[in-house]
Simulated assay, not measured.
Amino acid sequence: MFKNRKSILAAAALVALLGLAACGNPGNTTDSSSSSAAETRSLTDAQDHTVEIPNKPNRVIASYLEDYLVALDEKPVAQWTVGQGSIQDYLQDELEDVPTISYDLPYEEVLKYEPDLLLIGSSATVEGGKYDEYAKIAPTYVVKNGDGVTWEDQLNEIGKVFNKEDQAKQVEEDYKTLITQTKEDLGDKIKGKSAAVLWVTNNSAFMVAEDRSSGRLLYGDLGFEVPELTKEVSEQATSDWSAVSLESLSQLDADYLFLVNSDQGAAMFEDPLWQNIPAVKNEQLHEFGPETSWLYNGPIAYTKMVENINEVLK
């Protein structure tokens, strides 16, 4: 049974947080020369802060960047949560014993964990003088973020922070290999076929934008066709997920519909408008629970989504 999310507050916070990648100004990251024996290295982050990075940080907080840490065989000292216990379930094989910290990083909570490095995934997190406060606690590095910044960009930058550039490149290459193999294996099940992704929570539907999160994966990486409704939603999108009405969904011209279902008992599923969506009528509705990776970004999230698509379309 999939988990049923009933908290409107938690869902609203999650919608907002999933779209934080749209905030902030990306910057360039540069190394300064340092000997291998030095205890720290100077790196310039996305906001042009010169940050003294420990050569071997071992008490890292990287809220909402845990996917990248796990991909690079790093374990944070605390992991992201929003609301009452909403965590990135798909990472829990590696993070099961890691305590949680609120997504907005309250100073007192950060202090409690005595970090030796803070990685910040959104410029919005350090607005209003917050950067200076965090920097008093530990070296604070803002990872490039915002429009046009891909998970590969963030992975490679975080790889640089941990002196693991080669491992980051290998993770990226492994993903490219998976995409190539998936396109070969699925063949005509992708070519000329359209798909859309919906998230249903609290009896409301949200559609992923064409060039964000699982939208980028479906259309940019795998090559599915983009439905007209998705194009319309994407034109106005300011975050990964945008609200969409049931009336609009009844006109959704997608061959496949991938559903992230956070509300098993949603009344909308019994509505004739829902039941008449072409993909639903044609039994091409493929459902995943909120514990899967479909709401998230990062190399592990994308890899698991591709694996899910392979499983349901093979």
Rank of each mutant, 00 (worst) to 15 (best):
N4H: 12
K6I: 07
A12Q: 14
A13G: 09
A13L: 15
A16E: 10
L17H: 15
L18C: 11
A21M: 10
G24R: 13
G24Y: 04
P26T: 13
S33L: 10
A37L: 03
T40A: 12
S42R: 08
S42F: 00
S42Q: 06
S42Y: 00
L43E: 10
L43P: 02
A46K: 02
V51P: 00
P54G: 05
P57K: 05
I61D: 03
A62W: 01
E66S: 12
L69P: 05
W80A: 14
V82M: 08
G85Q: 12
S86H: 12
I87N: 06
Q88I: 07
Y90D: 01
Q92I: 06
D93A: 01
E94S: 14
P99R: 07
I101Y: 09
I101L: 10
D104S: 13
Y107S: 07
Y107W: 01
E108P: 11
E109D: 15
E109N: 04
E114S: 14
E114V: 11
P115C: 13
I120Y: 02
G121F: 02
S123Y: 02
A124D: 02
G128I: 11
G128M: 08
G129P: 07
Y131C: 08
K136A: 05
K136S: 14
G148P: 06
V149R: 03
E152F: 13
E152T: 14
Q167S: 02
V171H: 11
Y175N: 12
L178V: 05
T180W: 03
G187L: 03
W199E: 12
V200N: 04
T201F: 09
A205T: 15
F206A: 08
F206P: 05
V208M: 09
D211C: 06
S213Y: 05
G215W: 06
V226C: 05
E228P: 04
V233T: 03
S234W: 02
Q236R: 06
Q236I: 05
S239M: 14
V244Q: 04
D253Y: 02
A254T: 12
D255M: 09
D255S: 13
Y256V: 09
F258Q: 02
L259S: 03
L259A: 12
D263Q: 09
Q264C: 04
E270W: 06
E270Q: 15
L273T: 11
W274P: 02
W274D: 01
P278S: 13
A279W: 01
A279S: 07
Q284M: 06
L285H: 01
G289F: 05
G289N: 10
E291G: 07
S293R: 00
S293Y: 02
Y296E: 10
Y296V: 05
P299V: 07
T303S: 12
V306A: 11
E307F: 04
N308H: 13
